[in-house]
Amino acid sequence: MVLYSQFWQVDAGGTYGVSGPGLDWELDWTAPWEHLVEESRTWSLLEASEAPTVDNIFVAPTWIDRTDLYLER
C-alpha cells in the first residue's frame, strides 16, 4: 500500500525535492486492510496522473504492507 510519494528533480547541481500535485488525502486507519489498499491505490493513481512530467523529475513512493500495520499477524 502506498503511503505517500515524493517528487525529486535531478540536474547538474544536484537533487532537489519538488512539489507534487498537492492532493490532500488521508486514510481512515480504522478501516479494514482491504479498504485501505483500495483507497491508497485510487489516490496513488490520481496523484500519478497529476504528477509533474518534466524529464528530470522522478517519484519515490513510500509503502507498507499488512505486517507493518498489524504486527501480531
Results as ranks from 00 to 15, higher is better:
M1Q: 11
M1H: 14
V2W: 06
V2D: 06
V2N: 07
L3T: 12
Y4F: 10
Y4K: 04
Y4D: 03
S5A: 05
S5E: 03
Q6C: 05
W8H: 14
W8T: 01
Q9V: 01
Q9L: 05
Q9K: 10
V10L: 05
V10N: 07
D11N: 15
A12H: 05
A12W: 07
A12V: 08
G13S: 11
G13Q: 14
T15S: 08
Y16F: 15
Y16R: 15
V18Y: 02
V18D: 00
S19R: 14
S19W: 09
S19N: 13
S19P: 06
G20M: 01
G20Q: 02
G20N: 01
G20V: 02
G20D: 01
P21C: 11
P21F: 06
G22L: 06
L23Y: 06
L23R: 05
D24I: 07
D24Q: 09
D24R: 11
W25I: 01
W25R: 13
W25N: 12
E26G: 14
L27S: 04
L27I: 09
D28I: 12
D28A: 08
W29N: 15
W29A: 14
T30L: 13
T30N: 14
T30K: 12
A31Q: 15
P32Y: 07
W33I: 04
W33V: 06
W33E: 09
E34I: 00
E34D: 14
H35C: 02
L36Y: 05
V37K: 07
E38R: 15
E39R: 15
R41S: 11
R41T: 11
R41K: 14
T42S: 09
W43M: 11
S44D: 02
L46P: 02
L46T: 12
L46H: 06
E47D: 08
E47W: 00
A48I: 04
A48V: 04
S49R: 13
S49L: 12
E50N: 12
E50R: 15
A51V: 06
A51N: 10
A51W: 00
P52H: 10
P52Q: 05
P52E: 04
P52N: 09
T53Q: 13
T53N: 07
V54D: 13
V54N: 10
V54F: 05
D55I: 02
D55A: 08
N56D: 01
N56Y: 08
I57M: 04
I57F: 03
I57V: 15
I57H: 00
I57D: 02
F58H: 12
F58T: 01
F58C: 03
F58G: 03
V59E: 00
V59Q: 00
V59S: 04
V59I: 08
A60H: 08
P61E: 09
P61H: 11
P61F: 13
T62C: 05
T62E: 03
T62V: 10
W63R: 14
W63C: 13
W63I: 06
I64K: 05
I64Y: 03
I64Q: 04
I64S: 06
D65V: 07
D68I: 00
D68H: 13
D68P: 01
L69S: 07
L69R: 11
Y70H: 08
L71C: 04
L71H: 11
L71N: 06
E72C: 12
E72D: 15
R73Y: 07
